[in-house]
Every structure is written in C-alpha cells, then in structure tokens.
C-alpha cells in the first residue's frame, strides 16, 4: 500500500525538477558546449553566428596554441594569480583575527553586530561603482588621495600614481581585500559558533591558553569552511573583471589585465576574435574545474585515508587477538 503510494507520487519529483533541468541545459550546458566548439573555429565579428563554415579542420588546436603562447594572456594569467593571492592572504588573516576576537570565550567584544554590518558594507555595493569611485579618488592631478598626501606633507606636488604598475595593482588588491574580508570573517565566525562548546570546555580544563585553543581546537574544526572559502574565493578571483575593468581598464601597461578582461577585450573590442576568446575561456574553465575538484579531492582523501587507517588498525588488532586466542 505504502509502496504503491510512493510510486504514484514519484513522477512529481521529475516534474518539479524539470524547469531547473531545462533551464540548465539551455542557459548553461548549451553555452558551455557552444563556447567549446567556437574554440575550434576562426569565428570573428559581432552578430556572426555561422560557425560551421569556419571550423579549423586542418589545425583544430590553433586557437588554443595561439592563446597559450600569447604574451598578454600569460601576463593576464600571472596578474590574476598575483592579485588573487595577494588579496586572499591578508583577507583570510584579517578574517581569522576578527574571528579570534569575536569568538573569544574569556572576553566578549560588544557591538559585534554593528562591526559586522560595517565590515560587510563594501561587499554589497556595486563593484562597478566601487571601481569608478577609487579611480576618482586616485585621480591625477585633482584626486582625494593626491590632495590628502600633499596636505600630510608626503607629496610635494600631485603624482600620477596610476602610471605605476605596482601601485595600481596594489590598489586593486586593496579594493579586493577591503570588499571581501568582512564576508570571510562573518562566514568563519558562524563556523566557529557552530563548534560544540564542550570541545572548548575540554581544552580549558586541560589548561590550554588562548593561542593553543585557537590553533589546536578552533582551526581544525573549521577546516571545511576554510576550504570552502578558499575554493569560492579562488573561483571568484580567477573570474575577476569588474574592478580591473572600471578602475584602470587593465592598465597601466597591462598591469591589472586579468584573464576575464583579456577574454572580453579579445571578443568584444577591436578584433572580435570569438574563436580565440572562446579558446581562452575554455582554458580558464578547465583550470577552474581542475583546481576546485583537486582541492575538494585532497580534503576528502585525507579524511578517508585516516578512516581507512583506523579500520586497518582495528582489523589488525582484531586478527592479533584472534590469533592470541587461538594460540
């Protein structure tokens, strides 16, 4: 009776999942495959959708080879990694510091809610506006930062700071860190609040100090959340577009050119080289999928390996005992 009922209703599982599947097939899978195919073509020009006639039959990998050998793509890839790495490290350290402060069981910090709201604020503001705002603040000769540094006596006269590759990159890194540390801190704090209090009590009874508790109890407990943050940040970082585009449009001298900006420029600026841009997209797509699955694999493997070790140990012990018993 029960079984029959479940069987009857089962079809609604498919019906209710159908819109999602259809939308995914049309708006996500189809573009993925389409982009992949375009990577093997010589398609150019906006509005041109006739790809079948321009497939590069003779050297199908031409676009991929061109992109991988391209100097500005390499530069863009290195830039993207530098900008992501240099923003992720201070971001996660600052977030961990805030987490340690806000979840300290011995001294509670008041107005945590207010601080969290403040820390998260830059994240919710349109990135395009943030980028334009910072471009305006760092403007030459009459920008806020220039005037401020002159008033403080650090500069004698206005300096065109955005001509310097490292300064510009530094500002982009600062913006990214500034936008994301609050988010990361909130995520980590909620992770720490989810740890069973008994663990901390046990650590206290054992006489662990604050640092020992943080490094031996707190950090290992939020390993999964840290990993999740790492992966999402990495994917976001490898897709970085809005800030470098509207801050200095990849400049100066391609110092803030990211891979997404490279793809955009290839496809929609000047040459309309859809083939090459698609190839570059697919290379980045593969890198992201590879990296994120690698990171997930590493974590899962560790736990499983430990579990397997434990099982083996117990099996050995069991066998040993059996033998002992037999003997």
């Amino acid at each position: 009776m029960k079984k029959k009922k479940a069987y009857d209703y089962a079809r609604f599982g498919y019906i209710f999942s159908l819109p999602f599947v259809l939308a995914w097939l049309i708006f996500q899978l189809y573009p993925i495959l389409y982009t992949l195919i375009l990577g093997f073509t010589d398609l150019r020009g906006a509005g041109n959708s006739d790809w079948a006639s321009v497939i590069l039959w003779k050297e199908p990998l031409k676009n991929f080879i061109t992109v991988l050998g391209n100097k500005s793509f390499k530069q863009a890839f290195i830039n993207t990694l530098i900008i992501w790495g240099c923003n992720f490290v201070p971001q996660i350290l600052l977030a961990l510091l805030i987490t340690a402060w806000f979840t300290n069981r011995r001294s509670t910090i008041k107005a945590q809610g207010f601080y969290k709201v403040m820390f998260y604020l830059p994240n919710i503001i349109t990135q395009a506006t943030v980028a334009m705002l910072f471009a305006q603040l760092f403007m030459y000769p009459k920008g806020v930062i220039n005037d401020l540094l002159i008033q403080l006596g650090i500069f004698a006269k206005p300096v065109e700071m955005m001509r310097n590759a490292n300064t510009t990159r530094g500002v982009v890194i600062f913006i990214q860190t500034w936008m994301w540390y609050g988010y990361t801190a909130i995520v980590l704090i909620s992770g720490v609040l989810g740890i069973s209090p008994e663990l901390f009590e046990a650590a206290e009874v054992d006489g662990a100090n604050q640092w020992q508790t943080f490094f031996r109890v707190t950090l290992p407990s939020i390993k999964t959340i840290l990993l999740f943050t790492l992966v999402t940040s990495l994917i976001g970082g490898l897709n970085m577009f809005d800030i470098p585009k509207l801050f200095q449009n990849g400049g100066p001298n391609n110092a803030t050119l990211t891979t997404s900006l490279y793809i955009y420029n290839k496809a929609f600026q000047g040459g309309y080289l859809y083939g090459e841009a698609s190839a570059a997209s697919m290379i980045m797509f593969a890198i992201i999928v590879l990296l994120s699955s690698l990171v997930f694999y590493l974590l899962r493997d560790k736990d499983e390996v430990e579990l397997r070790k434990l099982i083996k140990q117990q099996e050995k012990e069991y066998k040993r005992k059996m033998k002992m018993g037999k003997i």
């Binding site: 389409y34 982009t35 997404s260 980045m284 797509f285």
Partner: peptide, 18 residues
C-alpha cells in the same frame, strides 16, 4: 555544477542569443 563558472561561457551564450 554548483562551482561551474558561468562567466566563462558567455561567448557561447551571446552566440545563442544572436
């Protein structure tokens, strides 16, 4: 599919819209 970067398949998406 949660982690698939949609932004990178935009050229195919644009072609489909064309």
């Amino acid at each position: 599919i949660m982690m698939l970067p949609g932004q990178l398949t935009l050229i195919g998406f644009l072609q489909m819209c064309y």
